[in-house]
Nucleic acid binder design. Structure first.
Length: 497
RNA sequence: GGCCCCGUCGUCUAGUGGCCUAGGACUCUGGCUUCUCAAGCCAGCUACGCGGGUUCGAAUCCCGUCGGGGCUACCA
């Protein structure tokens, strides 16, 4: 009779509206790993029809800056990960910046102290450091030894006279903590290896361990999907829930996502691959391509599917299909997916996205005339580019004011055979009145292939370099049509020495 | 060192005891097509870390082992 408990469980779960949060600590630009987490949080919220909460964990004022916070907001927006509560949109459980919630943490901290769940610890950093060293030497599990759990009146007076500022420590009771991680199953931590941890610094500011647990409870978070690095901090978080008086059935469900790693099996960092999302944006990667690729790191839709839209992602995403093993980031695959996504774009959309790159690269200034040309050229390069940044090398020949042939290509154009081809081409093109790519092709084929008996790649290669300046280009005849009769003729003539 | 997590082609993955002489995708190699580069199509290379069990049968379950990673802060 397995179905009875299943039904009860199902009701319990389905009664509660899902609330998932993405809570980065912006100590730098959001990176690939952060975004993968954000994406899964978002996808899960959308899949379940729940709410996606965006919270900024800026309790470490030394490392989190306003610029990084703004960059995080912008990055999420750019990716299309919209949030229901958080910075800029507000919500009923705000504020959503931890630095603005200090009084809330202070209140709970005072309560924990009064309840005896937490205690003041006067040990100095140096003393702690020394004791840790000793523990290591003695081969004992390192961690706070509980010295200040009981402080004699004399010691207390002494500490105070020394002007020591105490930290607030959570008392970990004997025993163990077991919780069910949706991805890893049942996980148990013996409290012998979870020492009493600090909730509030000597200066009164809260630590992550306090703030994260308080906020998740106060914001009624039902599901915590976050990086695997936080797995071992979960028992501490649960300890705070207990001190807050939260019933076990109201604890959020945890799901610890596997890491995204760099090529060399180390955590992704600047050293082994670019990690900042801004870097990818500036190189012409599409947000939907980044999301699609990142979704495939640690998750798969199954059925040999890979290319999914954002909408399909929200429909298909389930935590059950997330794995527990880490994934390596592969730029080649990202590029392939980016190319696929570019090919799926309609021309108007592609134009809109590619234009900023052409302007930034000073190929165009953005006039309507220029945009019209770009638009008519995009269809012939759409399947030739993998990133938006590649429109520049593909199309710059159309706009060059002082057109010059690539120095590397020059010797080839100067060869006798190439010169013969160009002279012949110049001759027949002069007489050509219908400047359509079909007509250009017909004329050149007749003159160069049939007339001169040359192989197409040889003959057209020379013309290509004369016209586009490079041996890699969009299709030649279309390129000539786009360039126009006058300029095409001028370039062919100019290549004749 | 201790605790915890993880282990299928080079990479991402499918796979939840028989459908697996292990499927798909990226990469790579070869071919077709072809005005270059792409795209597209076809073909090929390459994987269940290792050793024991359990079972008629294991990539799938158990144990051990090895390897990788995380945590071990008044960081998150």
């Amino acid at each position: 009779m397995v179905w009875v408990p299943f039904l009860i469980r199902y009701r319990l779960v389905s009664n509660k509206k899902v609330r998932v949060r993405f809570a980065p600590s912006p100590t730098g630009d959001l990176h690939v790993g952060n975004i993968r987490t954000a994406l899964f949080d978002w996808a899960y919220a959308r899949h379940t029809g729940g709410e996606f909460i965006f919270r900024i964990e800026d309790t470490d004022r030394e490392r989190v800056t306003d610029e990084y916070i703004q960059a995080a907001i912008d990055t999420l927006k750019w990716l299309g990960l919209d949030w229901d509560e958080g910075p800029e949109v507000g919500g009923n459980f705000g504020p959503y910046l931890q630095s603005q919630r200090l009084d809330i943490y202070a209140e709970w901290a005072a309560k924990f102290l009064a309840q005896g769940d937490a205690y003041h610890c006067y040990c100095s950093s140096e003393e702690l450091e020394a004791r840790r060293e000793a523990q290591k030497k003695a081969n004992v599990a390192p961690g706070y030894d509980g010295k200040c759990r009981e402080i004699s009146a004399d010691d207390l007076a002494k500490y105070k006279s020394e002007g020591r500022k105490p930290v607030l420590r959570m008392r970990m009771p004997d025993g163990s903590t077991t919780f069910t991680d949706s991805i890893r199953g049942e996980v148990t931590f013996d409290h012998n290896f979870v020492p009493d941890f600090v909730l509030v610094r000597g200066d009164g500011s809260p630590l992550y361990t306090l703030a994260v647990a308080v906020d998740d409870v106060m914001m009624k978070i039902t599901h915590v999907l976050r990086g695997e690095d936080l797995l071992s901090s979960t028992p501490r978080q649960i300890r705070v829930y207990q001190a807050m008086g939260v019933a076990p059935e109201d604890y959020p469900t945890f799901a610890h996502l596997p890491f995204v790693m760099g090529q060399d099996n180390a955590k992704l960092s600047k050293r082994n691959g670019e990690v900042s999302i801004a870097w990818y944006r500036d190189r012409g990667f599409l947000p939907e391509a980044i999301c699609n690729y990142l979704a495939l790191l640690g998750w798969s839709p199954g059925e040999d599917r890979e290319n999914v839209t954002m909408k399909e992602l929200t429909e298909l995403f389930t935590v059950e299909r997330v794995h527990s093993s880490p994934a390596r980031f592969d730029m080649k695959k990202l590029e392939a997916i980016n190319g696929d996504k570019i090919r799926l774009l309609d021309i108007e959309d592609l134009l809109k996205r590619a234009t900023p790159f052409l302007i930034k690269d000073e190929v165009i200034t953005g006039t309507p005339e220029e945009l019209a040309i770009v638009k008519s050229a995009l269809p012939i390069i759409q399947e030739r580019i993998a990133t938006l940044a590649e429109v520049t090398p593909m199309l710059k020949f159309l706009f060059a004011k002082n057109f010059v042939i690539d120095v590397q290509e020059l010797p080839k154009v100067k060869e006798a055979q190439a010169q013969d081809v160009l002279k012949k081409a110049n001759e027949v093109l002069q007489d050509l009145t219908d400047w359509s790519h079909q007509s250009i092709e017909a004329a050149l084929r007749a003159a160069l292939i049939e007339g001169m008996g040359l192989k197409p790649r040889i003959a057209f290669g020379s013309v290509r370099v004369a016209i586009t300046g490079s041996h890699i280009s969009p299709p030649l005849f279309e390129s000539m049509e786009l360039l126009g009769r006058e300029r095409s003729l001028a370039r062919v003539a100019a290549a004749i020495v």
